[in-house]
Design a protein around this nucleic acid. Structure first.
Lengths: 128, 128
DNA sequence: TTGTATATACGAAATCTTTCGTATACATTT
DNA sequence: AAATGTATACGAAAGATTTCGTATATACAA
């Protein structure tokens, strides 16, 4: 289903809405520009209209200025994209991906602690 | 660079070659079909020709049947795609992605142990 | 040697994504 | 009221990706 397979550009728009809450085309377009994505206002408008058709966004058209809300939550897309990545290049192994991600990236001591805690919890559940 | 941004279809082809080593169009096409991707032989041929142009694949044309080899290693693409995912939907935090990946997926005790060991190692390095 | 199977080459259609111009409506300012 | 600013609607071009048909060459079997 296309809703769970947003394109790169759609993802950028969703990102703005997830971060800032329901908003207008104007606002989204400004945020994209701020991020260095230089794109015309009507382009963003059209994208958001198409995304609405696809069911990714909903809009309130009661006012002159429409307000768009993401239908899918960030967490759903995150799951779907992780799943896709794991299956496409990590042979279905989440562990392989985790190892690579941690190897590549700098994680703070605090973050490592957080991950360790999650692992502890997962192991505890497993033993029950 | 397009080499590090393979499309979905290109990734499938790379996947076959990474898994099975350098091979022919015929072989790749058969593997794709086996995976449920129903696509004509000439389609796969064309894709692999384009990928060669893009520099993703190299080929040995000394024989009648060409042998294709992936230029980029799986690990490079893995890094690039993880990076992209982390930046596009996890606000640049590898930790967030790791937490979600582990939460979603079933990891075996063995795997959890492996991850824990990596974390230990990372922490040790940090303290030095 | 003639036919059949199997290769590559390559143009081009089909599809999807991204971009924007132009039309039109409404609100606000002058 | 007229001019200006700012909305949405929408068609369609531009680009990228994916698909495949047809042409042609080569190997091999009958």
């Amino acid at each position: 289903m296309s809703v769970s397979r947003p394109t790169e550009s759609e993802l950028e728009i969703l990102g703005v809405l997830w971060k800032n809450g329901p908003n207008t085309v104007r606002f989204v377009n400004e945020q994209l520009e701020r991020k260095g994505k230089n794109v015309g206002y009507t382009t963003t408008l059209k994208m958001m209209q198409i995304m609405t058709e696809k069911g990714m966004l909903e809009r309130d058209i009661s006012g002159r200025t429409h307000i768009y809300t993401p239908v899918i939550q960030a967490s759903e897309i995150r799951s779907a994209l992780i799943e896709r990545l794991i299956n496409s290049v990590f042979g279905g192994s989440a562990t392989k991906m985790v190892l690579q991600a941690l190897g590549n990236h700098q994680a703070t001591t605090e973050e490592l602690k957080e991950i360790r805690e999650l692992i502890d919890k997962l192991e505890k559940n497993r033993k029950k």
